[in-house]
Write a protein that binds this DNA or RNA. Structure first.
Lengths: 144, 144
DNA sequence: TATTGTTATACTCTATAACTATA
DNA sequence: TATAGTTATAGAGTATAACAATA
């Protein structure tokens, strides 16, 4: 086995542990328990990319359609998204944010990410640059 | 709000989404369903740091003690760890890997991380270097 | 009284399989 | 038949609260 292959295996191992621990920390950091991190991620994606079908949303978030159905049902119950029939395709549904969700996202951007933002502020600028690049690479890895 | 603060907030947002999607992808990548990713992470930590108490293991993995109890009970049932009384403190228990676990970890290092290793091999060397640094930074963020 | 670990309980997150409705 | 979405069901993962044993 080549040196590069060995290094890559070690990186895979360390990266996996780091991502698991970091994501646990992020989940547990929640203060407002009404909207979960999964819900918030779906809302963020809707704001970023605009209205879309449940299937598209599931693909964006890398979950299966039934999982997204549950999220959407919960969000609709909280008045954070609307479900409207697709104009031409009767099978499809269009999910969109309500004004309440917009306000919630603005609030979350300040409150909920406060912990992470605070931690990031304590890092060196070069470290933030590394994470900025790493976020893009991880999205790429999650995607393909 | 300063430019740096705005950038940090945006980084917090993007990093959170990237880590969530990436960790979902990692969890779903499992082929061998007998040992879960959570179990594997605990075993990896034991191999890396040696025998320790359930409480220490929970702290390492950033979970609460009852959560680790469940993991340890499952692993013991599979013959992958042993629970022995602490020599001097009757309250404590020492968790250690069995030879079966050592073999499993060796196998997993090849098989289970195959997907991630393969994806990492496809990256540019500079991208791997970024992830190597990012893994350390995320561990630091998860820790404090 | 403080610490370690466990039990009891419940909730979140996610999946697969089966079903319905529309194309 | 194929696609989009949902319902039904189940399992993994994790938490908080209460308890037991030991220091």
């Amino acid at each position: 086995m080549s040196r590069t292959t060995l290094d890559t295996a070690a990186l895979a191992h360390d990266l996996r542990l780091a991502v698991m621990r970091f994501s646990r920390r992020l989940r547990n950091q929640r203060v407002d328990t009404s909207v979960t991190l999964t819900h918030l991620a779906a809302l963020s994606t809707l704001r970023q990319h605009g209205p879309m079908s449940p299937g598209e949303l599931a693909a964006q978030e890398r979950v299966q359609p039934p999982s997204m159905t549950r999220v959407v049902v919960a969000l609709e119950g909280m008045g954070l998204v609307t479900r409207t029939p697709h104009p031409t395709d009767g099978r499809q549904v269009v999910i969109d944010l309500t004004p309440a969700a917009q306000g919630l996202l603005d609030e979350e951007a300040r409150a909920r990410e406060a912990w992470l933002s605070g931690r990031l502020q304590d890092l060196a600028p070069e470290e933030r640059a590394v994470l900025r690049e790493a976020a893009e690479i991880m999205e790429k890895l999650a995607g393909g």
